[in-house]
Simulated scan of single mutants.
Amino acid sequence: MLIDTHCHLDFADFDPERDDIVARAHAAGVGQMVTISTRVRKFPTILAIAEKYPTVFCSVGTHPHNADEELDVTVDELVQLSAHPKVVAIGEAGLDYFYDNAPREAQAQGLRTHIAAARQTGLPLVIHSRSADDDMAAILTEETGKGAFPFLLHCFSSGADLARIGVELGGYVSFSGILTFPKSEELRQIARTVPTDRMLVETDAPYLAPKPYRGKRNEPAYVAHTAAVLAETLGIEADEMARITTDNALRIFSKMPRVS
């Protein structure tokens, strides 16, 4: 079994066929999915999807693109919403200096709020980091010094130093379809340096479809292709890679039961 640790089943891309999307994931060996929040104010929509499907779980949080829209979201609100049995993570929150859709100060403030919620609840923080390696490493190091919290670096496409620092601070590294792209040899080299007990796989669907679906809409079933390339990169069997990443996912998403 595989677990897609990061998808966005609430996005409009999936509205016409969400039942079929989940069914295809199961047929491809993807037993569980985590659909990730990008806006706390839209959390009821995400929660309704997670409640509908026994194999789908969710997070609660504000994407850095939307950080300035939800600076009024408090630690207490995140903690309260995360008490629902289907909520297994906080986020995604983080820093995105590639698009800079929100002021960097707002992104950092939002990230620290989510860190505090992760620390208080013990739920893992799903971190988005793009073109912000130095600041992300600095915040994670500083905040971990105040008290450890579980976290994962989702859709990893940063440099080797951030991967190393993340692991040293107790975090996990999640690989998406980017790993399968022909020009991603540097990322595959970084994957070889990540301890096998700290790696996860995800789709980030509907974005970043792996080969052979690149350029098309992504969906949770396709995480199998990313896992196969990760296995090939590490020189292990695909079945073993599935076991490793599933065990890791259930460890960090400790509130999520094994349901298939």
Rank of each mutant, 00 (worst) to 15 (best):
K255V: 11
P212K: 01
I236T: 07
C155K: 14
P257F: 13
Y222W: 12
L123N: 06
L153C: 11
C7P: 03
M1V: 06
Q109Y: 07
P182M: 02
A118M: 15
A108L: 15
V88N: 04
I36K: 04
I190G: 06
A23E: 14
A23N: 05
V30G: 04
I178P: 01
H8K: 12
E92Q: 08
G31T: 15
Y53H: 02
V34G: 10
E232C: 02
I49L: 11
Y213T: 08
V88E: 08
P44S: 01
Y207D: 10
H154K: 06
E219T: 03
R243Q: 11
S174Q: 10
R119Y: 08
I127R: 10
M1A: 10
A89C: 01
Q32R: 12
M136R: 02
E77A: 09
T226W: 03
R104Y: 05
T246S: 06
L208W: 12
S157H: 14
H63D: 06
M33S: 15
D239P: 04
D247F: 00
R192A: 10
H63E: 01
G61M: 13
N101G: 05
L95M: 14
I127P: 09
R18I: 08
R243C: 04
F11L: 15
F57K: 02
E185N: 09
E142F: 11
I21A: 04
G94P: 14
P257S: 13
P210D: 08
P150K: 15
A205H: 13
D10H: 14
E70V: 08
V167M: 10
V223Y: 07
S37V: 00
D19L: 04
D72N: 15
